[in-house]
Nucleic acid binder design. Structure first.
Length: 195
DNA sequence: ACGAAGATAGCCT
DNA sequence: GGCTATCTTCGTC
């Protein structure tokens, strides 16, 4: 019932794709059932020229390797106690990625509630580490493609209004701190932070 | 083999 | 606002 978007969806230029992803659904078929969330916040990481990107300066390691692959691949990595979910963007050998920072619960809410320890709903998926926990997304999806089950991106409801601003949580990255590469749906309560 | 660092979140004062 | 959990990867010894 949830259809993956076509692979061509991911071929848009990275900043455009960051906006296009807003409103689309992340859908995960788990053992307990389907969980789905509508993307309301993203951040672009612009590859070799972006000091905040893992692939800055052409850095190519086991972790960043997937960023050099085709758009639409899953780039997961571990941040302290959390898994963070990214969409690989840009053509092959252009190591860009888009971090999914927040989603709005759409389906499988009882499963998310359990995974999030029955916190208030606003805290289930309002951050990159929170949403992966709520949706059961782990490092095993590194290198998976978002057009294939059991983890896909599907067409959702369009966003009302998009706002842009500087990215969250990056430091010591010089000018990159100010780049307006964060996109979110204006006023949406699941956006990770307003400032 | 070891130590440091990090695109976070939750709990504490 | 600060403190820290505890994971994977990377650079260096």
């Amino acid at each position: 019932m949830f259809e993956p978007v076509p692979e061509s969806f991911f071929e848009a230029p990275t900043l455009e794709l960051s906006r296009d992803l807003l409103g689309q659904l992340v859908v995960h078929e788990t053992e307990q059932g389907i969980v789905a969330g509508r993307i309301v916040e993203t951040e672009a990481y612009m590859g070799v020229e972006d000091r905040a990107a893992h692939s800055f300066g052409g850095r190519r390691t086991r972790r960043t390797e997937i960023m050099y692959g085709r758009p639409g691949l899953v780039y997961t990595y571990q941040m302290h106690t959390h898994t963070l979910l990214n969409v690989v963007a840009g053509p092959v050998d252009t190591p860009r990625a888009i971090l999914i920072r927040a989603v709005e619960p759409v389906e499988g809410t009882e499963i998310m509630a359990e995974r999030r320890g029955h916190m208030p709903i606003k805290q289930w998926t309002s951050g990159p580490g929170k949403l992966t926990k709520a949706m059961g997304i782990t490092m095993k999806y590194y290198g998976h493609h978002f057009t294939e089950c059991p983890l896909i991106i599907a067409k959702g409801e369009p966003v009302w209004e998009v706002e842009a601003g500087p990215r969250v949580g990056i430091q010591n990255t010089g000018e990159a701190v100010h780049y307006p590469y964060r996109f979110f749906e204006k006023g949406n309560p699941f956006v990770s932070k307003y400032r």
